[in-house]
Nucleic acid binder design. Structure first.
Lengths: 224, 224
DNA sequence: GAACATCATTTCGTATCCAATGGTCGGCGA
DNA sequence: TCGCCGACCATTGGATACGAAATGATGTTC
């Protein structure tokens, strides 16, 4: 889970459920960049009226994953190569701060990270791409959370969600997945040494691989 | 203006007007951290129904300036010293990226920045604190925008707004204001030399002064 | 004093209605 | 054929009225 929701999820309101459902639709590519999001359709799908849907859409607009034009409606945000690069620039800047703030980890914490990372490998056998993406996020954010910089981690979460419609194509081939797990292991090793500088460097390289894949996937459509 | 709204502001929707009005109330300390925001009250004040108000509140919640608890309502976010430090940590990280991306400025651009900075001085004579704050923001964001990293600058804008309820007490005494203008001049000089490293260092020091003032003003209420 | 029932307030959500906007489509004239 | 124009229509923006559910406070009982 990317968000900071630690509460026992009492009973979610319609707005919260709508937000989660739209996020899920984005992850599953049921909604793709540029696509218009009609309020009535969503409301019918969720079995609620338009009011909670509109609030959910406003939340996602503020997060940057949707764009809104008055009297026209909401659409999934399209990011060109330059804008996507800016999102990754922000990720690098904030993730670096978080990693630098990491304390010396306990054996338990290191074990926990290892477990989460190996869980990614287990997901490789299944065809479930969503599971891999989720496991990957779980690993990264478990690490980030150990910094104690909750507000910064929340912000990083927003940035991850923002690039999610573009990122989901990335972990498809098994070669890429194997590399991801390998790079995570190196980070854990560096963390065991308490070498945060190395962790930052590894994470930068790790992230650059994603960006490289993405740029390749995007080709070079300048605006469109 | 902090936001990226360059369009001729055709005719704003009720939601947009509500967002702006609430922001204004925060700047003017008509709403203070911890204070509850009642939907009906706001709706009456703005002369609209609760629907657009609720969407506006959702926007501001996503921005981090309001907190929402289901069935209880919205309240102005209270940041303790640690959380405020995190906001400034993010500001430093992102503003550094933006400043490093600044190109060599043209004479026109330098002149524009000087004009904006001197405008702060002019505001000193008036008692209008809101005017000073606005002029200060205008200077900073004019500089940021020259980087061309619009998404990053938008994000920095959100961070500024997030600390706004705490920042407004800062520029009250004329001594502080004189120092601000002086420090801005140094930045312009460094920009004229194209010395972005110096600009970053100056901005860090500049920001640290604010943080120091804020910490002093906050005392040390750990949680409240 | 602690556990429990009651109640007013506020929020959450629905249903229904109307206004305003933007796009579509067909006709019309140059 | 091209471009303009106006009618039509789908969608969004917003209001109003109403009901349901949750919360916090109050009062009651043991």
């Amino acid at each position: 889970m990317v968000s900071a929701e630690t509460e026992p999820a009492r009973r979610a309101t319609s707005v919260q459920r709508a937000v989660e459902e739209i996020r899920r639709m984005l992850r599953s590519r049921e909604l793709v960049p540029g696509q218009q999001v009609r309020q009535e359709t969503l409301a019918a799908r969720l079995g609620v009226s338009r009011i909670p849907v509109r609030e959910a859409l406003k939340t996602l607009e503020a997060e940057g994953v949707l764009r809104h034009e008055p009297h026209v409606g909401y659409a999934v945000a399209r990011l060109n190569a330059d804008e996507l690069a800016q999102v990754y620039l922000m990720r690098r800047a904030l993730e670096t701060e978080v990693l630098r703030a990491l304390p010396r980890l306990t054996a338990d914490q290191l074990r926990e990270l290892t477990t989460l990372n190996e869980a990614i490998t287990e997901q490789v056998d299944r065809v479930d791409v969503a599971g891999i993406v989720a496991a990957n996020q779980a690993f990264h954010f478990a690490m980030f959370r150990l910094s104690g910089l909750d507000l910064v981690v929340d912000e990083i979460g927003r940035l991850w969600r923002r690039s999610e419609p573009y990122r989901t194509v990335h972990l498809y081939d098994s070669g890429g997945r194997a590399r991801v797990v390998r790079e995570h292991r190196k980070m854990i090793t560096a963390l065991r040494r308490g070498d945060t500088g190395a962790v930052v460097a590894l994470m930068d390289a790790h992230r650059d691989h994603t960006v490289a894949d993405l740029s390749a996937a995007l080709g070079l459509p300048p605006r469109a």
